[in-house]
Design a protein around this nucleic acid. Structure first.
Lengths: 254, 254
DNA sequence: TGTTGACTCTAACGTTGCGTGATAGTATAG
DNA sequence: CTATACTATCACGCAACGTTAGAGTCAACA
């Protein structure tokens, strides 16, 4: 475990930066009995990810959304980083070329067009890739509006908010696990679904029956979701899907 | 001549950005009778320089200092840009390498050291080059303290301040030109030196006799200074140097 | 045991470079 | 003459910290 100054020095960031990341819920360390922050090895890995995202000019809010997402996949993310960094490098090479062209032009070469003078500064391509990245994250969340609402809502969440949300989620997971012993159409399973759906609506975005049904499918169709959910109990994702289908069918009068 | 929206679109910056650059005195266009801003071809060249500096993360205050400096040399500056951009590109390549190393580590490769995880993010080398750049600019200004005072002072100058300063400078130049007809040790030449030195002290930094003497030497030793000053009249730089030496000798009782 | 310097905490103001919105004047096309 | 687009200034807001202040904690030292 490391104290804050040690982390700052090893990572090349300031103590203030680490305070800020803690305050906004991006990188929250353990707290010692004396109130000091204590950072783990895993915190270092997370910090490295954060710095990769920062290098690509992602805003901290968005980095937080991505890193805190249930289906966050480090390998996949790193591959995307590499690609975006190559795009950024290409842009830099274009700017260097523009410097050369400008030098040549000043030496009595042909006059440069405005387009040639300025197009290398454009962030368009990088922003397009960022948007594609965001869209990919978004597609797992059930809809553009839902995603937007989620981002808007979670933006203002305090530490206390997050703590409560995570506790609620843990309680709901317990109910689902207990219901696994009974059946996906049991009263307990239905109650768990009701609470689950309500939790998503309260904390993230309005979860319609359509979205909820699609979410159940995703829990199984996307193995990253499955793997993450099954961490709590093997087979939980599959069970939740079944229960969610029953819940939605009943709610729709089927 | 171009209106603001045209410039914004051609250069890929926002109208607000151009307003801001006007407000802070970085890029000041002509004003049409109807109050609209009008940008010239030369403004485009200047804007391109600004974007090169921005790409290298120079603060706008500093860009302004550099661009408004009497010995600003576009060729030399572009060569430095190219070099700094290469340094920035090298850093990016190191970050890409770190991504690869991290991916390899995650695949069961050896555990990465903290140093290996974080050292590529360092801005140290870039900052060192920026400092070297700044120091070079600084060395032409007669001393570290003088430079610092100048930056501090000019930071808060308004448009009206700059206008007055430039008018004063023009009047002083006129006196020097008239004094060329008489001699470097004439009363008029001495008066011009007195006003010149006072002008520098009032507007930039405390100009001691030592600094003033050194400035005179520089006006001739550095051909960029010479070229710039001689724009007003051929041979003016050399004449000013002689007059400044006489002025300093007399002030020191030689 | 007390002192001291280093390190830690929280709080809050300041900085930079615009984005955004409001209000009002100017220009041009229909 | 009207509507729309473009222009002006003004001012608040934002993100991501830097910086400073005041106070608590810890370990080394006298």
């Amino acid at each position: 475990m490391y104290k804050i100054k040690q982390v700052a020095e090893l990572a090349g960031v300031s103590v203030r930066t680490l305070h800020h990341y803690d305050d906004i819920g991006l990188l929250k360390p353990e707290i010692a009995p004396n109130g000091y922050r204590l950072y783990s090895e895993d915190d270092f890995l997370k910090l490295q990810q954060i710095l990769f995202f920062k290098e690509l000019d992602f805003p901290l809010d968005e980095i937080k959304q991505i890193l805190n997402h249930p289906d966050f996949d480090r390998d996949n993310t790193l591959r995307k980083h590499k690609h975006l960094l190559e795009v950024k490098k290409n842009r830099l090479e274009k700017i260097i070329k523009t410097v050369d062209d400008t030098l040549h032009s000043l030496k009595g070469g042909t006059k440069m067009s405005k387009e040639k003078m300025f197009n290398s500064f454009s962030m368009k391509e990088i922003e397009e890739h960022q948007k594609k990245y965001e869209k990919e994250v978004e597609e797992r969340w059930g809809g553009t509006d839902a995603y937007t609402e989620s981002v808007r809502k979670t933006k203002s969440y305090t530490e206390a908010d997050w703590k409560r949300i995570h506790e609620e989620a843990a309680e709901i997971t317990k109910k689902f696990i207990t219901a696994m012993e009974i059946g996906p159409d049991s009263d307990l399973a239905m109650e768990a679904c009701k609470l689950h759906r309500q939790h998503i609506t309260d904390s993230y975005y309005k979860c319609t029956l359509e979205i909820y049904r699609g979410l159940g499918e995703m829990y199984v169709a996307d193995e990253r979701f499955t793997k993450n959910i099954d961490k709590a109990k093997e087979g939980l994702a599959s069970f939740m899907r079944e229960a969610m289908i029953v819940y939605c069918d009943r709610a729709e009068g089927k």
